[in-house]
């Protein structure tokens, strides 16, 4: 399966990265990692890229890493649709102090606009 993972550096996107790389190592998906500009993210692009390559090396997964500019949600949807991906994977949201699940703005946009199947990692 051709999988596009979109991450912007929030904690839930790092969790999605770890779980997706793990899954890829186990089932042999064809993975592409796209790093987007998440204004709400706390990590720099360089830090995210380092984390991605470390994790891919650790698990022996060979996956291209792409840097996407512009609005993150639409850049991900465009790429997934134009390059024939089967699935678009994103972080599944953060939890509030109360424990309520809160979906990020990128995931909201992707859910409402993507014609490619979307997976939110919890």
């Amino acid at each position: 399966m051709k999988v596009l993972l979109g991450i912007g550096g929030s904690d839930d996107s790092i969790r999605a990265l770890e779980k997706t790389v793990e899954r890829t190592a186990n089932v042999g998906d064809d993975l592409t990692v796209a790093i987007v500009d998440n204004p709400a993210g706390e990590r720099s692009r360089e830090d995210i890229e380092t984390r991605v390559t470390e994790l891919l090396d650790e698990r022996g997964v060979d996956a291209p890493v792409r840097l996407l500019d512009g609005d993150p949600g639409s850049a991900l949807v465009d790429l997934a649709e134009n390059e024939g991906f089967d699935q678009l994977v994103l972080g599944g949201g953060e939890t509030s102090p109360m424990g309520k699940i809160q979906i990020g703005s990128i995931a909201e946009f992707v859910l409402l606009n993507s014609h490619v199947t979307v997976t939110l990692v919890r």
Binding site: T95, S96, M98, G99, K100, I101, Q102
Partner: peptide
């Protein structure tokens, strides 16, 4: 339920309640 709370299993309910 609202946005995942209250959780659906007793052990998760206990974890959640201990927190709040």
């Amino acid at each position: 339920r609202a946005q995942g709370i209250p959780p659906g299993r007793e052990d998760r309910i206990r974890d959640w309640l201990e927190n709040i």
